[in-house]
Amino acid sequence: MFEAQMAQAALLKQIIESIRELITEATFEVSGTGMMLQAMDSSHVSLVALNLRSDGFQLFRADRPFSMGMNLNHMAKMLKCAGKDDTLTMRADEANDLVTFLFESPGNERLAEFELKLMDITSENLGIPDAEYSATVSMPSAEFQRIVKDLGSIGDTVEITVTKDDVRFAASGDIGNATIKCRQLLDTEKPEDRTLIEMVEPVNLTFALRYLINFSKATSLAPSVTIKLSTEMPVVVEYKLSDIGYVRFYLAPKIED
């Protein structure tokens, strides 16, 4: 038996909306520690890792580890039916190939029950080691989204260069070139407005912009985004979900022949 209650159905709806273009099917692994999902896009170039800790839920019960394979587009269709302020309760047990989403209005006057068919998904889970990164950049998530969208209109790839003073994003295309340089900015009223650069060694990496633009669909989930880079390694783009977990995106770099 699995049962979990979230104060805001809108949070899960937003999470699924932000990842469903990258991955259409995924298996949620449920256990006493929470709900986790790891899935690669069909080209095996990028990966989504979602972690929702059990202590971030209002109620969380998982008697034993349990896998729930879901079509994320179908899940999104149901989550769209939740009211803005509805609570969400998820229920599933191993006897049925169904997960139930219960949407309850704040005054308890409306209770909607949606049952989603679960599916068997064969997926390859990657073992991603905890690594030290050469450079870690935290910046406002809206700023990162603007940069990748702006550069996406110039070129297909972005070259990211981190030095101790700044982080540069550069793109080139048929119409010309663009470089956006962000300096470290620590003296801000709100911590989420900061741009923080932690650099062990300078890095310079190139990535396909369309994936980064896709990752930035998660902007509404967190005011700040953290980008972790090491030479010739996949980049990690992390959005922290306050009090409950994170969504991380991994993207393999482009490397010169």
Partner: peptide, 14 residues
């Protein structure tokens, strides 16, 4: 031109 690496070039399957 640049090569697009896949994630399996970096991480092993579990």
């Amino acid at each position: 031109s640049r090569n697009q690496w896949g994630l399996m070039d970096f991480y092993g399957c579990l």
